[in-house]
């Protein structure tokens, strides 16, 4: 594509707009035609949303020398390198181990966050005293504090306490995820009538049995929301793990991608394209399988958070 191609594209867009305007004028009464226009507009927007990823996918099969030249051209016999970028990129960044650590850290952290913060939220909501309401407000307060405020001191403390590994980082994520998660669980616990729990205890349940047999099952919808929100955050998080983890030993996917930039700014764009595609695939798979929960979770999280 060159300047004249862009000019042609601009003319095409202008023509499209003109057609839409004319059709609109004619079709005031014809719903079908109007819907047709809407579909055209929506499809155009959808193309804009998908094009960037499609372009990266095309370039991931090109030799690195040709990517910056013209990222919009299709691969041809000179530029095509097959899967070389993938194979070399995976080797260079330790991508497979990064995928493993990303899965480990995300799944374990989300599990720990859901379990611990829901228990904590139930406790501080049901046992009413000054200390617990103070704790509640501290959790809420932590939600508005930006990460930069604590990043230096927190990474210092984490290394002092020997938390600079994928197991220690779970503990850090529990602390950071606590604000939003406790807040959301507490909101839900407040709406559950106490009588059910009291009945369980009168029937001889210990608090722990009451929690797991009665309370947690009721909390399930909120637990799904909390899990989705935290999973999206932790999976994509770059700064926190890059400061905490010893990145020569442990990398997550965002860290592996960022490492391709190198210290002198010379990026191997072939490897970069391939790693971007590999980083996106798990997210897309996850999204397409749990789409309903993700969209509901995001809406619920936005409304409450």
């Amino acid at each position: 594509m060159n300047i004249s191609a862009w000019a042609a594209a601009a003319v095409a867009v202008a023509a499209g707009v003109a057609v839409i305007v004319v059709l609109r004028l004619i079709s005031k009464r014809f719903k079908a035609a109007r819907n047709g226009i809407l579909y055209v507009v929506l499809s155009a927007v959808a193309v804009v949303f998908l094009a960037p990823v499609a372009i990266i996918l095309l370039n991931s099969f090109k030799n690195k020398l040709y990517i910056l030249d013209n990222p919009f051209s299709l691969p041809d016999s000179t530029t095509w390198t097959g899967l070389d970028n993938y194979i070399e990129g995976v080797g260079k960044t330790g991508f497979l181990s990064a995928v493993g650590w990303s899965f480990f850290i995300t799944i374990v952290s989300v599990g720990v966050i859901v379990l611990c913060t829901s228990m904590c939220a139930w406790y501080i909501t049901r046992v009413k005293n000054r200390f617990n309401s103070f704790l509640y407000y501290l959790f809420v307060f932590s939600m508005i504090v930006p990460f930069q405020m604590v990043m230096f001191t927190m990474s210092y403390l984490a290394s002092k306490l020997h938390l600079s590994n994928p197991y220690g980082i779970v503990f850090i994520y529990l602390g950071f995820g606590a604000g939003l998660s406790v807040f959301m669980f507490s909101g839900f616990v407040k709406s559950i009538p106490v009588d059910i729990e009291e009945a369980a205890m009168i029937d001889g349940c210990s608090p722990i049995q009451t929690y797991f047999r009665v309370v947690f099952p009721i909390l399930r919808p909120t637990a799904v929301t909390v899990a989705i929100l935290n999973a999206m955050w932790i999976w994509n998080d770059y700064l926190l793990p890059s400061l905490i983890l010893d990145t020569t030993k442990y990398r997550t996917i965002p860290i592996a991608v960022q490492m391709l930039r190198g210290s002198y700014g010379a990026v191997d764009w072939g490897h970069m394209m391939a790693m971007i595609i590999l980083a996106i695939v798990p997210i897309i798979v996850f999204y397409l399988t749990c789409q309903k929960y993700i969209i509901e979770g995001v809406v619920a999280g936005a409304v409450k958070g």
Binding site: C116, Y123, I124, Y156, A158, L174, G175, F176, A178
Partner: peptide, 26 residues
Amino acid sequence: KSLKKYFPVFALPTVAAFCVSFLIPF
């Protein structure tokens, strides 16, 4: 009353992690 003494089980893990990663650094 019966729940109150369960602080270490229910709240302590979250509160401890919260102190280490947020409160003390803040």
